[in-house]
Design a protein around this nucleic acid. Structure first.
Lengths: 155, 155
DNA sequence: AGTGAAAAACAATGGCG
DNA sequence: CGCCATTGTTTTTCACT
C-alpha cells in the first residue's frame, strides 16, 4: 500500500536524505514551508515509516578503512539449513555492509569494507571459505569510488 | 595523519552511526559521558571530517522503489575522454547509488535502485548502453536483501 | 581529561486565519 | 497551510575540578 506523498513531502525527504542536521526552520526556507509544518510532516513521515532512521555517515579513510570489495559467493550444498547458517554469519559480520541474493551465476553478493588487503584476505579465507555451505568465493576490489552515497531517487 | 580516536570516540561514532536522533544526554548515558562532553567530542569529530554528514535513511518500498540491481559495465574504447564522460553521466544519475571501478573483468560496478524492471530496462537500454564509451552491460537483480545498512566496522 | 549549571537555540503543540 | 505564542527539550558555553 503506497502512502500519499505530495510535493512538499518529496522535497522534505530529499533535503533530509541529504542533510538531516538542518533545523526545521532551515528546511522550511529551502522547501517553502514554515518550521511548524516541517515538524508536523516529519513526524508523520517518521510515523509512517517512510523515514527509517537518522544516522551519521562516517569517513572510511579517517577510520583507516581503505579497502572496499565486492565478494561474490557461490554456495555448494543448497540445503535450507546451510543457507540459513550462511545468512546468519554474513548478517553478523561487521565488515559486511551489504548482502543480497542475486539473479545470475552468483548466489550472494557482499559489499565488504576493511582496513587493508590482509584484512580482506582474513575475511575471505578465515571466515567465508571455511563455512561448509560455501563452495566458491570471488572478490573484486574497488580501485576508485565515484559515488557511494546510497541516496534514493525521489521522483 | 591518522587522527587519534580514543575509546570514547569510537563508542560515540558507533552510536551515531546507528542512531543520530539521540540527544547528547542519551548518548552520554550509553557511553558513560556527560552531555557536554558528547557535544564537544561530536564537534571535534565533525570538524575533523570523521563524521561526514547526518542523513535520513528512507524506506525504498514506501517510496515505490522495488528493484535493486548491480550493473557491471565494460567500456569499449578506453580513451581518457570517454571514461571521463561516462563517469560524469553515472555520477549524475539519481538511480545510481554507488559506482566503483573494480579489479577484474568488469570496469565499473553500479548499484542501481529503481521502481520496477521496466525502469531498470530504461536505465540500461536508454542511458547506459547508448553511451559511446560503453561496450557491454550485465545486470544482476537483488532478489532478497539480507543486509543493506552500510555501517562501517569500528574496531 | 572530565562535570554540572546557566544561557541560547530549537522542537513541538495549540489556536487562529 | 501560514503565523504566532507557549512550553519543554536540547545544545552549547562557561566556570570549575
Amino acid at each position: 500500500m503506497s502512502l500519499a506523498l505530495d510535493g512538499f513531502d518529496l522535497k522534505l525527504l530529499r533535503v533530509l536524505q541529504d542533510n538531516a542536521a538542518l533545523t526545521n526552520q532551515e528546511i522550511g526556507e529551502r522547501i517553502g514551508l514554515s518550521a511548524s509544518q516541517v515538524s508536523r510532516r516529519r513526524q508523520r513521515l517518521e510515523q509512517d515509516g517512510v523515514i527509517r532512521r537518522y544516522r551519521a555517515t562516517l569517513d572510511p579513510d579517517a577510520l583507516g578503512l581503505g579497502v572496499t570489495a565486492y565478494v561474490g559467493v557461490t554456495l555448494g550444498a543448497h540445503s535450507r539449513e546451510n543457507a540459513r547458517r550462511f545468512r546468519e554469519m554474513v548478517t553478523a559480520m561487521p565488515e559486511v555492509q551489504e548482502a543480497h541474493t542475486l539473479t545470475g551465476d552468483v548466489d550472494y553478493m557482499l559489499k565488504v569494507v576493511v582496513k587493508d588487503l590482509k584484512a580482506l584476505s582474513r575475511v575471505i579465507n578465515d571466515e567465508l571459505l571455511p563455512h561448509e555451505a560455501v563452495q566458491n568465493v570471488r572478490s573484486s576490489i574497488a580501485m576508485e569510488t565515484l559515488k557511494d552515497d546510497n541516496s534514493l531517487p525521489l521522483s
